[in-house]
């Protein structure tokens, strides 16, 4: 399995199709920002990890982690526009 790449489309355990919008490494964690293709306000952030060569998406610790990582993604996306 390879790390997820920006632009890849996938489901996250339900029928909703998400696209990988961005990825960043912060505090030694690989964060992935997903957006629902049909409703981009529906965004999800998960931590990418490999376990036994299997790609896993772990949940963030709490709202503080979510808020701070989302801010970094916001800066990254704004810089790309």
């Amino acid at each position: 399995m390879k790390p997820l790449a920006v632009g890849e489309m996938l489901t996250l355990g339900d029928e909703v199709e998400y696209v990988v919008m961005s990825r960043l490494n912060h505090n030694n964690k690989d964060y992935i920002l997903f957006a629902n293709i049909d409703n981009p306000e529906d965004i999800v952030v998960r931590i990418e990890k490999f376990e036994n060569n299997e790609l896993c998406l772990m949940g963030l610790e709490n709202s503080d982690e979510f808020d701070s990582v989302l801010k970094l993604f916001g800066d990254q996306i704004n810089n790309s526009l």
């Binding site: 890849e8 965004i43 299997e54 896993c56 709202s63 982690e65």
Partner: peptide, 22 residues
């Protein structure tokens, strides 16, 4: 909603079935 989906502790295991090939 986004916060809940992002902090949900259930591990999402990605396999070929997750990729949207369309």
């Amino acid at each position: 909603k986004s916060l809940n989906k992002s902090t949900n502790k259930k591990v999402i295991r990605i396999g070929s079935q997750n990729y949207v090939v369309n």
